[in-house]
Design a protein around this nucleic acid. Structure first.
Length: 861
DNA sequence: GTTGTTAATCTTTTT
DNA sequence: GATTAACAAC
């Protein structure tokens, strides 16, 4: 029985849960009342697991009057929540959808970013949300940042100079202040507690229950606040953990708590070394790998890291150029030899996504721990559908009728969209159910009704995940309407765009499981196939802000604490395997993973290797286009590679003999199909901004610019255009002789090697401005890029214009120079600047190589 | 050391 | 489209 505080240092597969269960039952056997015992883990799944183990142990030891139900077995959060709920301190917890929404709302109000809205929503906001969550896990509040502002800023700039290249110092400073604003706004405007508040509120609470015994599992993931909760909630403490398995550092679960306890000599240490899970080959491999790369020199528990299953087969390092697509072959080989279950363990959800498509394609049954793809698809469909109902314009209508909820078949949808694109107003589909929804008013009730009557029934017919996503989105909207009592359409769609909902997984296990390392924790498989992925450096411009804040306020070096995490991630992945471990990687990575004596390197031959991943985008498109309620029929169409769609593509190219630079620079077929053939292209703000600016430039030349009619936000661009023009005039002593000149030449004239290109194909270009002094010429192309990063790409375009102008006007090409006129350099982060830049670099050999490459593609078409 | 260029790649997630 | 590693060039 436990007498002292104990720390159990346990290797993977050594029966941590069983150990806790045994100790708990031992207490009960010694007549400790069950309600004096508290067990804490991290996930609900782990709670369930521990309950099962304890019940089994009670049963084995013939204890009849107690079940796991009589004990307090909780997650940190559910424990805190129950205690706070009891005295009414708390009743609702904020969802992270709302967190993201509030951050986004503030930042868009501040116009903090010059990025596209899509990028802000998908990449920036989630990172900022993580950053806030991370800071809060250290107990940091906006005021702490405010009070240490100067010192933090100094540190940020220091770190910025060391590692950040994509934004400048000024932008970094602005970002820091935007970040503070967003954090502060979030804290002041959320109506509920978030998960971090929950833990801090618990600490503040006066009459806490105190248990005689407390058990804490996965100690290596416990952060400071959780450690404090454990310490005030129990007298005798029993901690179990393994620092080699600490892979949740990004949540604040740094190793410091574990280290502090293991250094504390007053705490009794126990070691669980004997592994019941894996063969010795796998164990030795994992051990040697860890010792080789980790700079952790106090891993005594690894000295006796042996198992009971015998030596087994060596770990297979399988080299292949396409790990995700080679998975089929590896699975086939494994299944020929062994009967057990297989865990495919990846590093990212994206890898899982690819693999699942691969398995789908080969009709191999599996369960997946990630359904991000379906979730995103469903979300997109729902947004498109609502936009089409509430925004009465062609672009939104077209996207909506292609969504599965509109009830139109693909063919119908295409015909309607063609009609709309041609501006045909006498169309006969306006009395269909979809269009009748437009009569409804935009409000909470209508939205719920549309969910119930139009979206959910069809979602249910598509798939379980799809349906679950739709219901999750519907219920998460409740919170939105609650907080935004004066909601608008824009608010509503912003919220939807930011919504994220991963669903609970199906519990039925098939023989093959797809999972990420993080989700695989605590699980085991007879055979594991691991697909590692190198971690990218994390000192991005957002990370240096969080690490500087923590460093100044808490004096903790986070970078240091997170060091070696990727070694631990690998270690966790390896130790999931019972009998076979295969590591599937690109040849250049195999040196890193090869451990002599315990592993062998295998190469997949290129022939067997050549199975292609079903084109992700093609699949997306098929899904997007064909799933509209008539699922079966749609699927058949897809399999047959529908003739009319083919015909459409054929006709597009047959008619398209006039090519423009932007048209031929496309190298993504899906994008091409969507935007150019089906004309479902998104018109982004940046596109409008750029084309308006070009119109103004033309008007300036023609002296027809009406300053009265210039929309908000274009004043600076116009000044900038004039400055660019002036710079060129003075520098070269030239006058502008043309603006927006459109011209076409036959592609076969462009280069000598193009003589054999079909002579009906022409290249069409529109030159923004041409200057001349009567002898020499200068072609200027205006750019509204936010920075000058894309010079080389633009130089390719300028070369094509140069050739075009030379041929068209019969001017020696050596007399023509080119320039890029950047008329709106604003950077990625809004610093309220809008600068100009003129680049006089002529196209070079690289430009020529590129442009020829593009044209070779065309002749292929 | 800084800046430029080009190709490769695009975290992890619980409550 | 954005970012970064890795190498090249000043």
């Amino acid at each position: 029985m436990i007498d002292d505080d104990t720390l159990v240092i346990a290797n993977p597969g050594t029966g941590k849960t069983t150990n806790i269960a045994e100790e708990v039952v031992e207490l009960i056997k010694n007549n400790i009342p069950p309600d004096k015992i508290l067990c804490i883990t991290f996930t609900n799944k782990a709670v369930e697991g521990l309950e099962k183990k304890i019940n089994k142990e009670l049963n084995d030891r013939n204890i009849k009057n107690v079940t796991a139900n009589d004990l307090k077995i909780r997650t940190f959060h559910s424990f805190a929540y129950e205690e706070l709920n009891e005295d009414g301190t708390i009743n609702d917890i904020i969802s992270y959808n709302l967190v993201r929404y509030l951050i986004y709302k503030k930042l868009s109000e501040l116009k903090a970013f010059n990025y596209s809205k899509e990028y802000v929503i998908n990449d920036i906001i989630p990172k900022l949300e993580n950053a806030i969550r991370y800071l809060k896990s250290f107990g940091i509040k906006p005021d702490d940042i405010k009070n240490n502002r100067d010192e933090i800023e100094k540190l940020i700039i220091k770190k910025h100079l060391e590692s950040v290249r994509n934004i400048n110092r000024e932008e970094e400073k602005y970002l820091f202040s935007y970040f503070y604003e967003a954090f502060n706004y979030y804290e002041n405007n959320k109506k509920y507690y978030d998960y971090n508040d929950l833990l801090f509120e618990f600490i503040k609470k006066k009459n806490k229950s105190k248990y005689e015994y407390i058990f804490v599992d996965e100690l290596q993931d416990v952060n400071n606040i959780e450690a404090e909760i454990a310490s005030i909630s129990g007298n005798k403490k029993y901690f179990v953990g393994d620092k080699k398995q600490s892979i949740f550092g990004f949540q604040g679960g740094a190793l410091s708590v574990f280290k502090k306890l293991s250094d504390n000599s007053k705490i009794n240490k126990k070691y669980l070394e004997k592994n019941y899970r894996s063969t010795d080959s796998i164990l030795n491999y994992s051990k040697e790998f860890y010792l080789k790369y980790s700079d952790d020199d106090s891993v005594n528990e690894l000295t006796e890291f042996s198992g009971i299953k015998g030596i087994g087969e060596p770990v297979e390092i399988i080299e292949t150029d396409e790990p995700e697509s080679s998975i089929i072959e590896v699975i086939n080989e494994l299944q020929k030899k062994y009967d057990g279950n297989i865990g495919v363990i990846a590093r990212t959800n994206d890898q899982i996504d690819k693999i699942s498509k691969m398995l789908d394609n080969y009709n191999i049954e599996y369960t997946s721990d990630s359904n991000i793809h379906t979730v995103n698809q469903a979300k997109k469909d729902i947004i498109n559908f609502f936009r089409g109902i509430f925004y009465n314009n062609n672009d939104d209508t077209i996207k909506a009728i292609f969504s599965p909820f509109s009830g139109f078949t693909l063919r119908e949808a295409f015909e309607i969209s063609e009609g709309l694109n041609e501006g045909n107003s006498s169309l006969n589909f306006y009395d269909t159910p979809f269009f009748s929804l437009r009569k409804e008013n935009f409000n909470k009730e209508t939205i719920n009704k549309i969910f119930d009557e139009n979206i959910l029934p069809i979602a249910a017919s598509i798939s379980r995940e799809y349906f679950l996503t739709a219901t999750t989105i519907k219920s998460s909207l409740r919170e939105f309407f609650d907080v935004e009592s004066n909601y608008t359409g824009k608010n509503f769609f912003d919220y939807l765009e930011l919504a994220y909902s991963e669903n609970e997984n199906e519990s039925n296990e098939s023989k093959i499981t797809l999972t990420t390392v993080h989700k695989a924790k605590g699980r085991e498989f007879d055979s594991a196939i691991y697909l590692p992925k190198k971690k990218r450096k994390t000192d991005s411009y957002i990370d240096i802000i969080t690490s500087s804040i923590i460093s100044v306020i808490k004096n903790i070096d986070v970078d240091n604490e997170l060091m070696g995490e990727d070694i631990r991630v690998n270690f966790v992945a390896f130790t999931r395997a019972r009998y076979n471990l295969s590591i599937l990687l690109k040849p250049r990575e195999s040196d890193y993973y090869y451990i002599p004596d315990y592993s062998i390197i295998k190469k997949l031959s290129s022939v067997e290797n050549s199975i292609a991943i079903p084109d992700k985008n093609k699949y997306d498109e098929a899904y997007f286009l064909f799933v509209n309620g008539k699922f079966k029929e749609s699927k058949e169409i897809l399999n047959k590679k529908d003739d009319w769609l083919r015909g459409l593509i054929y006709n597009f190219f047959r008619d398209k003999s006039k090519l423009s630079f932007s048209l031929i620079s496309i190298d993504n077929p899906y994008w091409f199909l969507k935007n150019y053939i089906l004309k479902l292209n998104e018109k982004t703000d940046a596109l409008y901004y750029g084309s308006n600016a070009h119109d103004f430039a033309e008007a300036i030349y023609e002296d027809s610019l009406d300053l009265q009619t210039i929309p908000e936000g274009y004043k600076e661009v116009i000044t900038n255009i004039k400055s660019v023009i002036n710079e060129i005039k003075t520098r070269f002593n030239m006058e502008q002789i043309a603006a927006e000149v459109g011209a076409a030449i036959r592609v076969n004239q462009m280069f000598d090697d193009f003589k054999n290109v079909d002579n009906s194909i022409t290249f069409f270009g529109k030159l923004d401005a041409v200057f001349s002094d009567g002898n020499k010429y200068l072609i200027l192309d205006y750019k509204t890029d936010k920075n000058e990063n894309n010079i080389n790409h633009h130089r390719v375009q300028l070369l094509s214009y140069k050739i075009l102008y030379s041929i068209k006007n019969n001017i020696n090409i050596n007399k023509i120079n080119t320039a890029l006129g950047y008329i709106s350099i604003r950077g990625n982060i809004n610093t309220h600047k809008n600068d100009i830049g003129v680049v006089y670099k002529e196209p070079d050999k690289y430009s020529e190589k590129k442009i020829k490459g593009i044209h070779i593609k065309i002749s292929g078409l």
